[in-house]
Simulated scan of single mutants.
Amino acid sequence: MGAHSHSHSHDNIDWDAHLQRLRAADDFIEPDLVEVVGRLLLPDDRSVIEIGAGAGGTAAIFAKSLAGNGGDPQLTIVDTAEQLLAAAGERASDAAEGITVRTVRADAAADTLAAEIHQAGAPAQADLVYAAFVVHHLPDQLAGLRRLAELVTPGGRLAVVEFGLQTRVLPADVGIGAPGLEARLLGASEQWFQRMRAEMDGAVRLPVGWPKAMEEAGLTGATSFSYLVDRAAPLDESGRAAALRQLQMLRRDADELLDPGDVTALDQLLDPEGEHYAGNRDDLHYLSANTVHIGTKP
């Protein structure tokens, strides 16, 4: 799961390539997402609002599950990026019949979020509101949780997915550079994230854990569960692609955060023409843990 997959305020994106990457990531973790949706969606649920479209992989699973619940199921997908909304809406609509799928262009950081969803003709509240890897991008995360809680029907739930344990794909010694490369890459990634938060306009710290924050946002009975994305070596083609996407993400800003020797080693691992290309290794694995935090609207 990409660490920064739902921040879409930037321009000049190669959307075809971006969507291709997001779709591949969705397909790779689909079995895990099916399990998560199965734990979150209750038999009586008739409506879901998903904040952050991605490429629509999770939305498609919600669509299938909601359609199975019967009634008049409603799925609303919210994002700021038109291209992602279109792709996600199409994928969710194709996934199941008998469900109304709406896409709404709106920003989870804006106080007008609920009004914009309502103005788009979508239900203003849902039985389940789901936001994966979205809230950590909001300047004021507690205010963001309160905003999302407004979208939940009384008795419904807000589910927020955030990072549990950092993704690991490499053996401890890759044979180039100093051993322990991945640990140093992950340390640099954490530095990048904290700097991103510190430099964000209007950033407000959230010095409590997510369940506590959800209770401060007016939700009750906050609970959490984690799910593993666990693929052992040797990886198949989709697994190798996922491991390479992870390494490519860790390459961002590596020049200023890492020792030059580690940057050189990482570049060698990412060079398809080189002898040390990670895509040719049979000892890559993929292990990640994400945590789902759930709060109930009184």
Rank of each mutant, 00 (worst) to 15 (best):
M1C: 10
G2L: 11
S7N: 13
S9M: 13
H10S: 15
D14P: 04
H18K: 11
H18P: 08
Q20W: 13
L22Q: 12
L22W: 05
D26Y: 00
D27M: 02
V34L: 10
V34D: 14
V37F: 00
L40D: 07
L42M: 13
P43N: 09
V48T: 01
I49N: 01
G52I: 04
G52E: 03
A59G: 10
A63G: 04
A67F: 07
P73A: 05
P73H: 10
Q74R: 15
T76L: 04
D79K: 06
A81C: 11
Q83N: 14
L84G: 15
E90H: 11
E90D: 14
D94H: 09
A95S: 03
A95F: 01
A96W: 01
A96I: 00
T100L: 14
V101F: 08
V101H: 08
A108M: 07
A110E: 07
D111H: 13
D111P: 10
L113W: 04
I117T: 03
I117G: 07
A120F: 09
G121K: 02
A126L: 02
A132R: 12
V134P: 02
H136G: 09
P139R: 06
D140L: 08
G144W: 07
G144Q: 03
L145P: 01
L145Q: 01
R147Y: 08
R147D: 05
L148K: 04
G155L: 11
V161L: 14
L170M: 03
I176N: 10
I176H: 09
G177K: 01
P179Y: 06
E182M: 10
L185C: 10
G187L: 09
S189L: 11
Q191R: 14
W192S: 13
R197L: 13
G202V: 03
A203G: 15
P207L: 01
W210T: 12
K212E: 15
A213V: 07
M214V: 06
G218S: 05
G218H: 05
F225W: 11
Y227G: 05
A232Q: 15
A232F: 12
A233T: 06
A233H: 03
L235W: 00
D236K: 04
S238T: 06
R240V: 04
R245T: 14
Q246P: 04
L247A: 05
Q248D: 15
M249I: 12
L250K: 07
R251C: 13
D253Q: 10
G261Q: 08
V263Y: 02
D267Q: 08
D267H: 07
L270N: 04
D271W: 04
P272D: 02
G274L: 07
G279R: 00
N280E: 11
R281I: 06
L284D: 01
S288C: 10
H293Y: 12
